[in-house]
Design a protein around this nucleic acid. Structure first.
Lengths: 362, 362
DNA sequence: CTGAAAGCGCTAACAA
DNA sequence: TTGTTAGCGCTTTCAG
């Protein structure tokens, strides 16, 4: 009747065994392999356990013994709380989760990208590495762990399985669309190219020393389209680099571009979040979209549809699922296939229109 | 020079110690407490480790030894991949993450609510339990783990710290708003009341045996407002229960309500996701919102603003953060305060308007 | 069907 | 500054 929790420490499997005069192995079996012992004995064991306050096998000890953690780690370029605020990151995680949950694995989301220690000591069977700054210590730490890794949207693959998006192609489509509509001056709202972050006009070396693949590829897609149209990049384009992927930041940057002397007639944003901010900036400046200003986003997150934003679709959920599947394949001992390049596609909605011909003289 | 990875098994700390003729503790210190040994020796150890292919202390063994996992677990009412698709869940997780990341803890997201085994063997120092069906085995498993738990939006608190939302009050405000606008017939798009799920009109016993707190509270808030206005619930209201919280489901249910004989003039949706579907159904049926039909959502997720949806705001991020903080407090040995009830507030936007007076005879 | 033995790899007292 | 000791709590052959 009385739960005999004699000592201060918590009861262990051994205590239960001792109390019943059976071996620890038998108690273990009662929990892990019910078929390995008689129902009667099992019942007795479970009852004794309850009375002793034994709560079942300790997961930490079990993990050590079994040599596996039952979880896969996800390392992301930003603070974890930010990952949930970024719709594109949420879609990606949704994809990863859809793969891992089928295998019964949990997802261990690491709190921040700038604590290699957390990476070093995370109890995981593998890592999905998403957009880490090239050369960062967390990236290094994950790769050195000796567990399978999958790299997503990274510049370098370090011989690991990797998933890529055709960002260059998507950006090219976006810029080409605007060129086809007659636009000749562009503002680019760029995601952070380099780590550590800095807001402002990126100088050339900042591009050369870029830490992130997506903005680099997108920039070069934009450039290819614009230069192929016979325009000179420096004259036709103004680039501003965000120090955060948020609507607020997009609004700030767009306002700066749009209220300057050489205000562009079209904006290329490297994310829908930035584009959303640009939309607000335009509204605040009294510019009508798309009549006065065309805007193209990137990612095609769910709210882009609601906002009727012309944008570049990337298969973000699929990207995540693929990453998860590649990791599972490695865990299963399969040799993974070559890196995958997923397609992008321009989705024309309501924020782009032909450039209005402005009378040169009033 | 040659990396001497002699045996098949991976090198351990002990191997490094043996190779150098030092004690395991010293090697351990080289990694965990650099100040406890001379830089020179530490350097030698690190070099030897590299040569032996030793990758640093095994997290699993370290966890066991230290008796802590460095992660907090989150159990959610649905498949994990769904949590990322539900904007409200993402906001909640954002809040939890913002609390735990400051403590340097990772978030272990469990793959599905219907696998108590995963809960039982998750390597975590505590659980945030979010909207689990009352009486579910996962809930039971988490509470039996003997680690701190925080319950969020649960019917029963089991003596644990808990966080609640004033759902009854929020729902009351929503219904009152519609009543004030002259509406007298209502359709309610309900979240699942009971587990297992079932779509359709909930009978009374389904409400009595409800597994989830939010829909129950919201229903009773709606009811209080409507009956206080002197209307008879059964006559004024049609309730349809969703079997999933998605726009698609909302669209299906709304269509059913709106194309029936006694089509209501106003819809109360228990989530913005369902309301979004209702908006689509209205559009498909040629109903103008808000002229022909008023719609109120619930949650106030980011896209509600973009869609100009009248809805009930709940402080979802704060709810998550609070849950995280309560868990951290327990982990720190503090005795947590009484359960918290967070406020809700109606946000009137563009999807509600006075009931149009319809000519009774043509 | 049950038990004995042998660690999994590490860390934290404490001792030297 | 470094080493010794003693497990953390469990699982898994393998014998009986």
């Amino acid at each position: 009747m009385s739960s005999a929790k004699l000592p201060g420490r918590r009861a262990t499997l051994k205590d239960v065994a001792a109390a019943l005069g059976v071996s620890p192995a038998t108690v273990s079996n009662a929990y892990n392999r019910p078929d390995q012992l008689s129902p009667a004995l099992r019942e007795r064991i479970l009852i004794a356990a309850r009375e002793l306050g034994y709560l079942g096998p300790d997961p930490l000890a079990r993990n050590l013994r079994r040599g596996q953690a039952g979880a896969i780690g996800v390392v992301y370029a930003d603070r974890l709380s930010y990952a949930f605020a970024d719709p594109a990151a949420a879609l990606f995680l949704q994809g990863v989760a859809s793969a891992t949950e089928q295998a019964g694995l949990s997802l261990l989301l690491l709190p921040t990208p700038d604590s290699p220690d957390t990476v070093t000591s995370a109890a995981v069977d593998g890592f999905v590495i998403y957009c880490l700054p090239e050369g960062s210590s967390s990236l290094q730490a994950a790769l050195s762990r000796g567990v399978p890794c999958v790299l997503v949207d990274q510049l370098v693959s370090y011989g690991q399985p990797a998933v890529y998006i055709d960002d260059e192609g998507g950006a090219h489509q976006a810029a080409q669309h605007l060129l086809d509509l007659g636009h000749r001056t562009f503002g680019i709202l760029s995601l952070e190219l380099q780590f550590p972050r800095r807001r402002g006009r990126p100088c050339t070396d900042r591009e050369a020393g870029a830490s992130f693949r997506p903005p680099l590829e997108r920039l070069s897609g934009y450039r290819r389209a614009i230069e192929s149209a016979g325009l000179r990049w420096e004259e036709a384009v103004q680039v501003l680099e965000a120090n955060e992927n948020s609507p607020e930041e997009g609004e700030t940057l767009a306002r700066e571009l749009l209220s300057g002397e050489r205000a562009p007639t079209a904006l290329l944003a490297m994310s829908d979040q930035l584009a959303l901010g640009a939309l607000r900036a335009a509204a605040n400046l009294g510019l009508r979209v798309p009549e006065d200003l065309s805007i193209v986003g990137y990612d095609d997150v769910p709210s882009a549809g609601a906002l009727n934003l012309t944008t570049v679709h990337q298969p973000t959920v699929r990207k995540g699922r693929l990453a998860g599947e590649l990791l599972l394949a490695q865990l299963a001992g399969e040799t993974p296939a070559a890196p995958e390049l997923l397609p992008t596609e321009l989705v024309v909605r309501g924020t782009t229109a032909p450039r209005r011909t402005v009378p040169t003289h009033p």
